[in-house]
């Protein structure tokens, strides 16, 4: 079929452009605006150039927060992804128990973030919390308010409790799409349980795993509410992740310029790492092709 060439067709893109501009570009621009200016109050701003960016990149405090952030994200990905796959593999495939499992698994996902934080904040308290008191009664010296390791363990366990379901549910959906004939053929071919996982289940889950890893990476890298409610970033700075640090800077100290520069770099880092994840995982896929 002959297609006509008409540049006026671009006008059809305008509504989308306008929407995206209002929803994303314009708010982001205000951040960009702050990031290159300085103020001494009275709503007077002065051009500051890249000064805030230099400060952000060289700040030891932010480096430390970034280090904690990377460690936290790495730990929760290393736990939640394998655990999610494991749970999905062992969930019933159909019937009453499958529905029950799905509902129970979805529960943590439905709880608002600050409620999750509050639940764990109280749960872990040594004076009134079930977990804290039990551990103390067992003779374990646990107190997330003054021991950094206890704080980390609490925050990580809370995140695993909150989000493993997401990975499990996504993997479960991937597993459900595998036709029964594949398992039958594997039995006929006398494949081991591991071979079934490696050659049938894992390849079929790859697509949803990519989504799961990306979502969990982005969410955990931006985590704010839950650790803030539980530990407030402490003890000391031990659980001050990037978002907590950023909010302290922007709202606590009202350093709009440095906070804006920080935000932009933060955003670019997330974008970059997401891109790396995506590229690596889709290329693993493509490597299979001749």
């Amino acid at each position: 079929m002959e297609k006509s060439w008409n540049n006026r067709a671009w006008f059809l893109v305008l509504p989308v452009l306008a929407l995206v501009a209002f929803s994303a570009v314009v708010p982001l621009m205000t951040v960009v605006n702050y990031s290159v200016q300085d103020t001494f109050g009275n709503n007077e701003f002065f051009w500051a150039g890249l000064e805030w960016f230099e400060e952000t990149v060289t700040s030891e405090r932010i480096h430390a927060a970034l280090g904690r952030q990377v460690l936290f994200t790495a730990i929760i990905l290393a736990i939640e992804v394998p655990l999610g796959i494991f749970v999905a593999l062992h969930m019933p495939k159909k019937g009453f128990w499958a529905s029950l499992c799905l509902i129970l698994m979805a529960m943590p996902l439905l709880i608002p973030f600050n409620v999750v934080g509050t639940i764990w904040q109280i749960f872990g308290r040594v004076d009134i919390g079930l977990l804290g008191r039990t551990l103390t009664a067992l003779g374990i010296d646990y107190n997330y308010t003054n021991d950094w390791l206890d704080a980390w363990v609490t925050v990580i366990v809370m995140d695993v409790w909150h989000w493993t379901s997401l990975v499990a549910l996504l993997c479960y959906a991937g597993l459900q799409s595998i036709p029964e004939a594949y398992y039958q053929a594997a039995k006929i071919d006398q494949a081991s349980r591991w071979a079934v996982f490696r050659y049938i289940e894992l390849p079929k889950m790859r697509g949803v795993l990519l989504i799961a890893v990306l979502l969990r990476f982005m969410d955990s890298f931006m985590i704010y509410t839950e650790p803030f409610v539980v530990t407030g970033g402490g003890p000391g700075n031990s659980t001050t992740f990037l978002s907590i640090d950023l909010v302290k800077m922007a709202i606590g100290q009202f350093d709009l310029g440095p906070a804006a520069a920080f935000s932009i770099i933060y955003f670019l880092v997330i974008l970059l790492i997401s891109w790396v994840f995506y590229t690596v995982m889709t290329n693993l896929d493509r490597e299979d092709r001749p």
């Binding site: 036709p179 004939a181 594949y182 039958q184 053929a185 050659y199 049938i200 390849p203 079929k204 299979d288």
Partner: peptide
């Protein structure tokens, strides 16, 4: 089986 089953990877 009636429909092809191959190990994709």
């Amino acid at each position: 089986f009636q429909f092809p089953v191959v190990y994709d990877t």
